[in-house]
């Protein structure tokens, strides 16, 4: 009896959250699956001509931007995440080992987290500006000619290549993601018992081995958490590109093959043409493709972390 009563109470407490989640998360989720299989869905009329199994998916894959989006997403994910995790780990270990200014530096490194991504994107767009940019100015001090990172020096000169724009984007992505990672790693490091380090010191453990044999394994739950969530976040990259390049998703004047569009960019692209026949279904199909990629990848990671993570 008592148990039953507490069960009712528990459901009651959960009800408001469940209600909101149902309306704004679960319904759209299932609806997306539904929409992805409709043939010639007209958003404005709400009509469709029956179902199609793979039609919308094939349409997405056949889009000229699809290959570019896949490539961009893959590059952003597999370059930025490992670098960001490693850099964040290094900074956290360094921060954790200093005593003076620790609080101050912690705040400095955490600032990007509370700053709007679009604002940071604009700041980075300025840093990488070919004529006035900080980076080119600094390169000028050491005698390197200005590099055309993300915008054209002369109108009509379309020599901004994908690789330079991507470089700038990656720098921005990595930097923007550091704050949260550092915070999580730092709190993880601070919860490691200092006696492990004292024990290691007494046993004459070289610094490198302390890091690889003690710090990393003891931090591995945090590292796994950060890695998995960062990969998921990177697969969904879009905001950063908007922040840096604006709605065109490419440096001004660049060719469409040099676009920095991602899979989420593809989804938004379809949504922007919602009035076209089947556009919404294509957006839904693109998001499901992304979902499947993320799902597969996360499952692999969880399998790996089972062997590598010490809880």
């Amino acid at each position: 009896m008592l148990e039953k009563q507490s069960n009712v109470k528990a459901w009651l407490y959960l009800a408001p959250a469940m209600l909101l989640l149902s309306v704004f998360t679960f319904y759209p989720l299932f609806n997306a699956f539904f929409l992805a299989f409709l043939r010639d869905y007209e958003f404005l009329l709400g009509s469709a001509r029956g179902f199609t199994f793979l039609g919308n998916f094939i349409n997405v894959i056949n889009k000229p931007d699809f290959g570019i989006a896949m490539k961009n997403t893959a590059v952003i994910t597999f370059v930025s995440v490992p670098i960001a995790v490693i850099v964040a780990l290094m900074i956290s270990v360094a921060l954790n080992s200093i005593k003076k200014f620790q609080g101050f530096l912690q705040t400095v490194f955490f600032l990007p987290y509370v700053t709007n991504a679009i604002a940071i994107g604009m700041a980075f767009a300025f840093i990488f500006h070919s004529d006035y940019g900080l980076l080119n100015t600094m390169l000028g001090w050491v005698g390197i000619d200005p590099i055309n990172w993300i915008n054209l020096r002369q109108a009509g000169n379309a020599d901004t290549s994908w690789i330079r724009a991507m470089f700038a984007l990656l720098v921005y992505t990595i930097w923007g993601g550091l704050a949260f990672k550092i915070m999580v790693f730092l709190s993880g490091l601070q919860s490691i018992d200092k006696q492990y380090y004292d024990a290691a010191r007494i046993d004459a453990t070289p610094k490198r081995r302390v890091f690889s044999k003690i710090t990393v394994p003891l931090l591995s739950p945090m590292i796994a958490y950060i890695t998995i969530t960062s990969f998921i976040g990177a697969f969904k990259a879009y905001r950063t590109i908007i922040g840096m390049f604006g709605e065109s998703l490419r440096p001004p004047g660049a060719l469409s093959k040099d676009s920095l569009i991602t899979i989420v960019g593809l989804v938004y692209d379809s949504l922007a043409h919602a009035d076209a026949t089947g556009a919404i279904s294509e957006a839904a199909a693109a998001s499901i493709i992304l979902f499947l990629i993320i799902l597969a990848f996360t499952l692999i990671q969880m399998q790996v972390s089972k062997r590598r993570v010490h809880f």
Partner: peptide, 27 residues
Amino acid sequence: PEERGIGLVFQNYALYPHMTVRQNIMF
């Protein structure tokens, strides 16, 4: 400490939790 040639047993032992007994002793 590492040059003094001492062995220290901590109050809560400070055994490395992710290593086996053998790995701990061999460390």
